[in-house]
Design a protein around this nucleic acid. Structure first.
Lengths: 192, 192
DNA sequence: CCTGTGCATTGAACTAGTTCAAGAAAAAAT
DNA sequence: ATTTTTTCTTGAACTAGTTCAATGCACAGG
């Protein structure tokens, strides 16, 4: 049951069996049906969740009422609203399952307890946040510097599984372009 | 000499005098003239630098040869290319002083030594990376969801000192719009 | 089996922002 | 003080991407 997640954390730092057991005891296993919110705008995000199975999106609503997807999450990824989680402030975001999901949920209090009992986890969390930051910066660079077709090609290259798993208009929303324009890009690409 | 930087790290975790002294002994104080590169594309970034005095920008060159500014840094900020620093891979970025600067440079080896000697710094670095991630996500959200005038107004609100300190075309580059368009936005705003 | 609801496609009109070019103003260098 | 360089402004022509509206498609639910 805990194999995958233990392997995940062990990629970043080495833990003893006992440490992993302490970690595991602080996780809550949850099955969540499709189209369920883990977090809604205005709430304070008090968890980080490891995705055992399923697909999740986090998005916000912009000034014109449009959904803008910030991140997709699939198996072996962590999801949270880090801004809200860190500062205990109301979230601007929605986190919603797109498929039936199985998660390991780590609440903020359990995370603090874990860090207290097994300080080596500080390193683990620092490293995954760093990785996340580096990915987010890369996304920012792409968003700012690339044309819509380039962004789309980069996306399917970087996330081939996700691009086959979610509806196109979600991908458009992630790329920050209209669903119609993505459709036009795709027909143009396929004609070559 | 170390007052400001020690105050900076103490905001995130509490350290004893001895721990701070160990930290300080691993920093290298440097005066760098204006328009000097701390990092250039292709190099591996092996430092994080705390800005005692001065102003720095980090930018990359996009596919059309344009500079796109990712971040400004001023007094009491840390600068680095985290993607390159973490993974020891060649950077896509340039980090350049925009004024004469005074820095405390922490090299990667010194950082590892620090983390080894004073593990509590794991927490400090985790927390600043989290803060950075949260700011970068916010920047991504603004970049994707706001119009150019909104981005500009948000920028001068968020960074009033920076907006008075650097040339406008740098701000345009940060906002991802052309310098001409920023000028037009500004005249339009001032007419109201 | 049909029927509704969400998804993808296409075209036409539109708009936010770009590009190019030229000139004015300000700052830096000599 | 004058020249050189950099920054800022303005207008006209352009383009990448949006918006709106209509149409076809697919597949989940009764």
């Amino acid at each position: 049951m805990f194999e995958a997640i233990n392997k995940n954390v062990s990629k970043f730092a080495s833990f003893t069996q006992g440490e992993l057991e302490q970690f595991n005891s602080l996780l809550k296993y949850q099955k969540i049906p499709k189209k369920t919110y883990l977090l809604q705008e205005g709430e304070i995000c008090n968890f980080e969740a490891y995705i055992v199975k399923g697909c999740i999106r986090s998005y916000f609503i912009d000034a014109n009422g449009f959904e803008v997807i910030l991140q997709f999450g699939i198996e072996d990824w962590w999801v949270s609203d880090i801004a809200s989680f860190n500062d205990k402030k109301p979230s601007k975001m929605y986190i919603e399952t797109m498929e039936d999901c199985e998660l390991f949920v780590l609440t903020d209090t359990n995370k603090e307890e874990l860090l207290h009992k097994v300080p080596k986890f500080e390193r683990f969390f620092r490293l995954i946040v760093q990785k996340n930051l580096s990915a987010t910066q890369n996304r920012l660079i792409n968003t700012m510097a690339k044309s819509a077709p380039e962004k789309y090609l980069e996306f399917i290259k970087l996330y081939p599984t996700i691009s086959q798993r979610v509806a196109q208009h979600y991908i458009a929303s992630y790329l920050g372009i209209s669903a119609e324009f993505l459709s036009k890009i795709r027909t143009k690409i396929s004609k070559q």
